[in-house]
Measured scan of single mutants.
Amino acid sequence: RELRDAFREFDTNGDGRISVGELRAALKALLGERLSQREVDEILQDVDLNGDGLVDFEEFVRMMS
């Protein structure tokens, strides 16, 4: 339940997936600093298991585990 709530916080447009822009904004909020595009792309590449360029809830749960 906590992970579902956190996912909703990251998924600002409510489409059920976290985009690169949403991921960048969430990481900035969490870390208090802006990451480079390359750093965000590397994180997305590690987390995006199905290669669609987005983070779905299952991928998010794995990222947070």
Rank of each mutant, 00 (worst) to 15 (best):
R1Y: 06
R1K: 15
R1Q: 07
E2P: 05
E2L: 01
E2S: 03
E2D: 01
E2I: 01
E2V: 03
L3M: 12
L3T: 04
L3S: 02
R4F: 04
R4W: 03
D5S: 03
D5A: 05
D5L: 04
D5F: 09
D5V: 06
D5K: 09
D5R: 08
A6M: 14
A6I: 08
A6V: 12
A6D: 01
F7E: 00
F7G: 00
R8Y: 07
R8P: 01
R8A: 10
R8T: 13
R8F: 01
E9C: 04
E9T: 13
E9Y: 05
E9H: 03
E9M: 07
F10A: 15
F10D: 00
F10H: 14
D11K: 00
D11I: 00
D11H: 00
T12S: 10
N13E: 02
G14C: 04
G14H: 13
G14D: 06
G14E: 06
G14Q: 12
G14R: 11
G14T: 02
D15E: 02
G16N: 15
G16W: 02
G16Q: 05
G16D: 12
R17D: 03
R17C: 15
R17G: 13
I18D: 00
S19R: 01
S19D: 09
S19A: 03
S19L: 02
V20K: 01
V20M: 14
V20W: 05
V20G: 12
G21N: 09
G21W: 03
G21E: 15
G21T: 12
G21R: 06
G21D: 15
E22S: 02
E22C: 02
E22P: 00
E22I: 01
E22L: 00
L23Y: 05
A25G: 12
A25L: 15
A25K: 02
A26W: 02
A26P: 05
A26S: 05
A26L: 14
A26H: 05
L27W: 07
K28L: 09
K28P: 14
K28Q: 04
A29K: 14
A29N: 03
L30S: 05
L30E: 09
L30C: 13
L30P: 07
L31P: 13
L31W: 05
L31Y: 09
L31M: 15
L31I: 09
L31G: 14
G32C: 02
G32D: 04
G32H: 10
E33Q: 11
E33A: 12
E33L: 06
R34A: 13
R34C: 13
R34G: 13
L35K: 15
L35M: 03
L35E: 08
L35S: 10
L35Y: 12
L35H: 13
L35R: 14
S36V: 14
S36C: 03
Q37C: 02
Q37G: 09
Q37N: 15
Q37M: 04
R38K: 01
R38H: 15
R38T: 10
V40T: 06
D41Q: 03
D41W: 07
D41I: 06
D41N: 02
E42M: 07
E42Q: 04
E42R: 09
I43G: 15
I43W: 07
I43E: 13
Q45H: 11
D46Y: 02
D46K: 07
D46S: 08
D46A: 05
D46C: 03
D46G: 08
V47D: 05
V47N: 05
V47I: 05
V47K: 09
D48C: 00
D48A: 14
D48K: 15
D48N: 15
D48E: 15
D48V: 14
L49M: 05
N50Q: 11
N50P: 06
G51T: 12
G51D: 13
G51A: 13
D52S: 07
D52T: 06
D52V: 07
D52I: 08
G53F: 03
G53Q: 14
G53W: 03
G53P: 06
G53L: 05
L54T: 12
L54N: 13
L54I: 05
L54F: 05
V55E: 00
V55T: 10
V55N: 01
V55W: 06
D56M: 05
D56V: 13
D56R: 09
D56N: 11
D56W: 02
F57S: 15
E58P: 11
E58T: 09
E58I: 00
E58M: 06
E58D: 09
E58V: 08
E58S: 11
E59Q: 11
E59K: 09
E59W: 05
E59V: 14
E59F: 07
F60M: 08
F60R: 00
V61G: 11
V61A: 10
V61K: 10
R62H: 05
R62G: 11
R62C: 08
R62T: 06
R62Q: 07
M63Q: 10
M63G: 06
M63Y: 08
M63S: 07
M63E: 01
M63F: 09
M63I: 12
M64C: 14
M64V: 15
M64W: 14
M64E: 15
M64N: 15
